[in-house]
């Protein structure tokens, strides 16, 4: 999957600019531990909004760097399938759900804070976030 690195991100924080994220990812050893064979990630959005597009792009970027070759992304548009919001207890959009590996994990937002996405996906320890806000 081809990822565009140079896509401008409006809500990017200082720590999650390109170089910062790379440095951070390199430090990440946790990924190897939870790295199972197959990752199923589901992204719930409501229409093609700016946040939805941003979230998908961020997700693809992270997956390419962390889970290359062993991930699968499903995008679900709740406007097209409204009942799925009820069935999957979705309130906020965008919501990223890690279906596999178990247990299921949820991350909300446009995924612009990469560290938090990694914590949410259990790719790094939460303790890595201490002191960073």
């Amino acid at each position: 999957m081809k990822i565009k690195h140079d896509k401008p991100k409006t809500s990017r924080t200082k720590t999650s600019d390109g170089s910062g994220r790379r440095r951070f990812l390199e430090r990440s050893t946790h990924a190897a531990k939870s790295g199972s064979d197959r990752w199923v990630l589901r992204l719930y959005v409501a229409g093609q909004t700016a946040k939805a597009v941003t979230a998908l792009n961020n997700l693809k970027l992270i997956c390419e760097e962390q889970l290359k070759g062993k991930y699968h992304i499903e995008v679900i548009d709740l406007l097209k399938n409204p009942t799925l919001a009820r069935d999957n207890q979705i309130l906020a959009v965008p919501t990223l759900v890690r279906k596999l590996p178990l247990p299921v994990r949820n991350i909300i937002g446009d995924l612009s804070d990469t560290e938090r996405v990694l914590v949410g996906l259990d790719l790094i320890e939460r303790s890595a976030l201490v002191g960073k806000q």
Binding site: A85, G109, D110
Partner: peptide, 24 residues
């Protein structure tokens, strides 16, 4: 169902999911 411990936030979000559910 809302439970904070299960939710991680990364970046901005909105409650469109809730709106859709109420609308439905």
């Amino acid at each position: 169902h809302v439970e904070r411990s299960e939710v991680e936030q990364s970046g901005e979000y909105d409650l469109e999911g809730l709106f859709i559910r109420i609308h439905e």
